[in-house]
Amino acid sequence: MAGIVGYGAHLPRHRIKVEEIAKVWGQDAESYKKGLMLREKSVPPPDMDTITLAVEAARRALKRAVVVKPSEIGAVYVGSESHPYAVKPTGTTVAEALGATPDIHCADFEFACKAGSEAMFVALSHVASGYMKYALAIAADTSQGAPGDALEFSAAAGAGAFIMGMDNLIADCLFTHSYMTDTPDFWRREHQFYPQHGGRFTGEEAYFKHTKGASNAILKKSGMQPKDFAYAVFHQPNGKFPQRVALELGFTQEQINPGWLAPTLGNTYSGASPIGLTATLDVAKPGDMIFMCSYGSGAGSDAFIWKVTDRINQVRDLAVRTKKLLDENVMYVQYGTYAKFRHKIIKND
């Protein structure tokens, strides 16, 4: 059975608090903290981008994979909506940095916040078909939110990486299900700096419909119920949406807690549910079942059911844990520094 051989995450150290953003735009920080359950978010410094986050997360995945040599990786797929180049692949730089070139297939995926889970889905399919021994799927973003827009309170950065294979697994993938429709809830046209969104339309008809659609379908397909899982991870555009969808589907707060990172990480877009999965694997026990459902605007969800194997105990501490990266040694920045870091200030050449 196909599954995860190694996993890793990477996050920036810098953070900005919701109060700091609200202060600049005359908004009420408390309403974001209570309404969307967001307290702070990660901020990538100028020398960090989707490529550098992807490389560091992938190096940790390789450390945990132990048995995998970079030259044995048959594909590197990077899902992101913030690839540093419009034309020039992210995947080749990542593969080169890992020492996995030149006998390899690289592709960059895009699908709003679902690009990472689609890279995972394709990587799993390649190893399940026997077409290659290992495939690396990375979910990475340094997401953009327009100044003063509600998105600015959540748009964050981070990466999760997964080496898929058929042996030496730390988690088997038992089922997958994807659910998508054409729903215009969030988009960015070519040459535009920032995405636009449909405000409240991003909720019921977009996030909740697709997340529930994929979740209910995979539960039916597997014959399982929410109580059969130790943990559940959902796409997290803010703290509130994943909590609400989890509770409405019949999962509990305890089940989502390890992978529910948005309140202090923000929305890492393509990275959101994959990074949540890395934090969940960090605490999972052999035999635990993990439910995962991504969401990407435009719109669709990929759902996965993972079963953790005995090997998790041998590999989890071969690289730094995600929660440690999230909680420890953070550096808070003020809005001016944040605006400089995120290239929101117009300068002369």
Binding site: D47, D49, T52, V55, E56, R59, N329, D349
Partner: peptide
């Protein structure tokens, strides 16, 4: 040593990546 963007050739040129030091805190 961490993988970082080392320099970029203006707004339209090539991006250059490499290693930088970060404090070892974990």
């Amino acid at each position: 040593l961490e993988f970082r963007r080392v320099q970029s050739e203006g707004a339209s040129g090539v991006l250059s990546y490499g290693y930088k030091f970060v404090p070892k805190w974990y």
